[in-house]
Computed example of a mutant assay.
Amino acid sequence: MSNLVQRLNITAHPQLEKSLGYRGDSPWVAWRWEPEIEQLICSDGKTVETGNNMAWLVFLQHDLVQPVLQEYNLGEGDRHSLLLDRKTRNLYIGEGTAIQSLLEQPESLCLLTCLNGNTKGDRNFAETWQKKLAKTTKTNAFRHLTNLIPLSIAATLISALGVGTGLWVVPAVQQKLAQKTAPISPMSFEASCYIGQSYKFSSHVGSLNGNKELHLIAVYEATSPQENGNRAKSAIEVKVERQNKPIILALSAYEPINWNVTVEPGAVIEKILVNGYHNQTISGVTGIPVEEHSYEETGDYLGNFIYKWDATTESTNTPSLVTKLEQINHTKLSSFQGCYRGTSFTIK
């Protein structure tokens, strides 16, 4: 069992389950992410219901939580589940199928609690552990087995399995939840483009519904081509200030660009997608997944290299970049900004 379900060095705040959307009264509850419907799911062994996506995201990014849980990919994958003992406030991580089986067998959860006691190396605690273990299994064979375990070995086992630092997860979700339930703020833009009739700024506001937003910034180039024909990589500044929901940021250019991204406090970028014919790079941020699709670097690109909104239609040979982005991210485009030659853009 210990290989499938492990106790974490985190002690949950008393309001954690409420913040994550659980309203039941069971002593144990588990959460997992369902990527097919992009939804948090909570289960207590009796009922399965949806949870609060935004609160889950904030919880996973908490300074005390992220270092412990980031390897389990709880914000995107469905392999692992997070399990909470509501009495002791202990948190466990494990295979989703194993945790669901535990929830359906309360006696197994009792055994899990016994194996992860907080007292270490104490003879009396070891004796108590043996009594609880025998009572839990309710079989003569298992009672006989526990009597054969030396108390010193039992205490050592408990000491090894019961390590914990008692870190408190203070729920910083109330502000985020208020942001989610508040009316959706209107989109606004700031951009710096080359001055000229054919290079004017183009924009579009699309769907702002759903639990995430997809924003696209597209140019042909950042500066005029070099006279000697060399393509020197130029920089474009991108500032993300919008805080309503997690953002998928898409950046597109034909010429080589270094996109320098600044994320203002409170804004959350889920991932960055880059589309280009020539090599594109990202700077200014760390810890955000980046997917590059450039013909020069990866041998493929997502779609046409648009820089005006009225040029988003598909052609025979090249798919629409907007259509492709919406398909792979399972969400509608929220905004578009573009011009032939740009130097800076802001999403507000």
Rank of each mutant, 00 (worst) to 15 (best):
H278W: 15
W56C: 00
N124E: 13
N244R: 11
A191L: 02
C193N: 04
T156W: 10
R231H: 07
V285Y: 11
S335V: 10
L115C: 15
Y72N: 09
E49L: 08
L74D: 03
L20V: 00
K308T: 14
L177C: 01
G299L: 09
G196M: 07
Q243L: 03
T313E: 14
K245E: 02
L84I: 02
G303P: 15
I41Y: 01
E71A: 10
H278D: 13
P289G: 06
P106E: 06
K271C: 12
Y307E: 08
S81E: 01
H62Q: 15
T286C: 07
F201V: 03
L321C: 07
E38H: 09
I282R: 12
S192I: 05
L208H: 10
V238M: 02
M187F: 06
T318E: 15
L249C: 01
L83E: 00
R23A: 11
Q105C: 11
A250F: 03
L302P: 11
D85T: 09
I158D: 12
E213V: 13
P319H: 10
C339E: 05
H80N: 08
F305I: 15
G117W: 05
K200V: 14
G75Y: 11
T312V: 14
G299W: 08
Q174P: 02
L251T: 05
S202Y: 15
L208P: 07
R143I: 02
K120D: 12
E190P: 00
E326W: 04
I272K: 09
G117A: 09
Q197S: 12
V29S: 00
L74R: 04
A178I: 07
L57K: 14
T165F: 14
T47P: 00
Q280V: 15
D63T: 12
E107K: 12
V58L: 11
T119C: 10
S188D: 10
Q179P: 01
I306E: 06
H330S: 08
R86W: 02
L20A: 01
A30E: 00
I282S: 09
T223N: 15
V65G: 03
H278I: 01
